[in-house]
């Protein structure tokens, strides 16, 4: 099984040199710690920045410089700032190669639910619906099962959708699966996880 950092490290293997990438809040944010040597990626923050740098040193925080999670960050030599309409124009226009996002549920056809639990959690979708509709490739990083052991990789989502048939690949604590015709295809199992265990934890149809 992979922990949060191992899942982030595995997700970082998805990055390709020269890509512009948007990382969601939570585990996806950790991906920036594992960018492989020799790969240059530019991180987009949808509140209006390309070229997101690390957290500032203590005492150097700037209230005017935050990421989409409202955390204080820094700029890099290649940083560019722009407004929200421009930011989502580049997302909607397909200029962002990949988004790595968290999920509550994923279905075998690539449906994604990650923005609300009716009656419980009403925070909003933020930029997630725009990202999944607009970027070239959507990779989801999530726990494969809930705290009570139920599969979050389903035949169809039970929660309100963020996007329909938008996920390309999911990286869970049990392994990596791709959305293909007819269901999900196992790409690899996490360390110490057998294919049988991965199948048993998956409600969705596994093909091949």
């Amino acid at each position: 099984m992979w922990d949060r950092n191992q899942m982030a490290a595995r997700a970082a293997q998805e990055l390709q040199d020269g890509w512009y990438v948007n990382l969601g809040i939570g585990i996806p944010t950790l991906v920036s710690n594992y960018i492989p040597k020799g790969i240059e990626v530019t991180l987009q923050s949808e509140n209006g920045m390309l070229g997101m740098g690390p957290f500032p040193f203590e005492g150097e925080e700037d209230a005017d410089l935050i990421n989409a999670g409202k955390q204080t960050i820094t700029e890099l030599p290649q940083t560019a700032y722009f407004d929200s309409a421009q930011s989502f124009a580049m997302i909607r226009g397909g200029k962002i190669a990949m988004a790595i996002l968290g999920a509550m549920e994923v279905a075998e056809n690539g449906d994604l639910a990650n923005w609300m639990i009716p009656g419980k959690l009403v925070k909003g979708m933020g930029g997630a619906m725009d990202l999944v509709a607009g970027v070239g490739r959507v990779v989801v990083v999530m726990d494969h099962t809930s705290k009570t052991g139920e599969s979050k990789v389903l035949k169809s989502c039970t929660l309100p959708l963020t996007g329909r048939a938008v996920v390309n690949r999911m990286i869970t604590h049990l392994g990596v699966l791709d959305v293909v015709k007819g269901g999900l295809k196992i790409v690899e199992c996490a360390d110490g996880v057998t294919e049988a265990e991965l199948r048993a934890a998956t409600e969705a149809t596994i093909v091949g």
Partner: peptide, 25 residues
């Protein structure tokens, strides 16, 4: 959706009463 809200404001200011987007389909 955040991009839809930004574009709705931009469009309103630019004299564009409506626009089509994939977001939320």
């Amino acid at each position: 959706p955040q991009g839809t809200l930004a574009e709705r404001l931009r469009a309103g200011g630019a004299g564009i009463p409506g626009f089509y987007t994939k977001t939320g389909v």
